[in-house]
């Protein structure tokens, strides 16, 4: 098959557009999360997504709308992580652990109680970007527009809160509002990223592009742009190679993200050695 033939398939076009939009959103939010030491929130929310999907399937919502229907519970879980950490009595990693375990345990119990679902709940563990439907594509586009608009509008506030929350408060920034927005958008990104990479690999989409961009030692704005660039590149390469080699797209996307990270890391080390 010719490389360009694959772009004629409707499902590949949908996968690429949705993948690019979701990867860009994840990379943008991921930079703020990584810098605030919330890297593993993607994992936590992905596990909660597992429980939420089980609830959605148990109450009989069509599998076509599972992504949309799982959103409210994941958003509540994200806010729970924020509330637990903002009390300053529980660290971020512990709060993520609590919510994550609850999500997985609830999912397993519900799956067991229902005696199994028509749709294989465990297929969500590995995701499949090539099965993105039109409603999910539309949702990805809307979420992309919202996240880009929020990042542009709240850029100064997000920058200050990420640098130092107390300093931001002393500047009159409503840090609580900024945090709630960031955590809610992260929940939406995690649910969408589940479609791309599966529950097991959601956090990779949030963490890896940001980490790769941070190796370049650029200014904040340029780091954001670089993170989005790496994320989009990994999605496009991942989908193409997954299709050509008949391999799972989600895992291939993550592997390309890791390759970019190692490549940039090695290039940085080499340039330091030459100095």
């Amino acid at each position: 098959m010719d490389l360009f033939d694959i772009f004629h398939y409707g499902f590949v076009q949908r996968a690429m557009i949705a993948g690019v939009l979701i990867a860009a959103v994840s990379a943008l939010l991921g930079l703020f999360l990584v810098l605030r030491r919330f890297s593993l929130i993607g994992d936590g929310l992905a596990h909660t997504t597992f429980g939420s999907v089980a609830v959605v399937l148990l109450i009989g919502i069509s599998p076509l709308y599972v992504t949309l229907a799982a959103l409210p519970l994941v958003m509540v879980s994200s806010l729970a992580i924020y509330k637990l950490t903002s009390s300053r009595k529980i660290n971020a990693d512990a709060a993520i652990g609590i919510v994550s375990s609850l999500g997985i345990a609830a999912g397993i119990i519900l799956a067991s109680l229902s005696g199994g679902f028509n749709v294989d709940l465990f297929s969500y563990l590995f995701g499949n970007i090539l099965t993105v439907n039109n409603s999910e594509l539309l949702l990805s586009f809307i979420v992309f527009l919202i996240v880009v608009a929020v990042v542009i509008y709240f850029y100064d506030d997000l920058f200050a809160v990420t640098f130092d929350q107390e300093l931001a408060q002393s500047m009159g920034i409503k840090t609580g509002r900024v945090n709630v927005i960031l955590f809610l958008l992260t929940a939406v990104a995690a649910v969408l990223a589940m479609k791309v990479a599966g529950i097991m690999l959601v956090s990779a989409l949030l963490i890896l592009p940001a980490l790769t961009a941070l190796q370049l030692s650029l200014s904040f704005r340029t780091t954001m742009i670089a993170a989005v660039g790496f994320a989009v590149g990994a999605v496009l390469c991942g989908i193409v190679f997954a299709f050509l080699l008949n391999l799972p797209a989600g895992a291939m996307i993550v592997m390309f993200n890791i390759c970019f990270l190692f490549f940039v890391f090695a290039a940085k080390k080499l340039s330091h050695l030459r100095r």
Binding site: L35, F159, S217, S219, F220
Partner: peptide, 10 residues
């Protein structure tokens, strides 16, 4: 955070 990508000017 020593990884924070903000310049002194920023």
């Amino acid at each position: 955070n020593t990884h924070f990508p903000g310049t002194v000017a920023e």
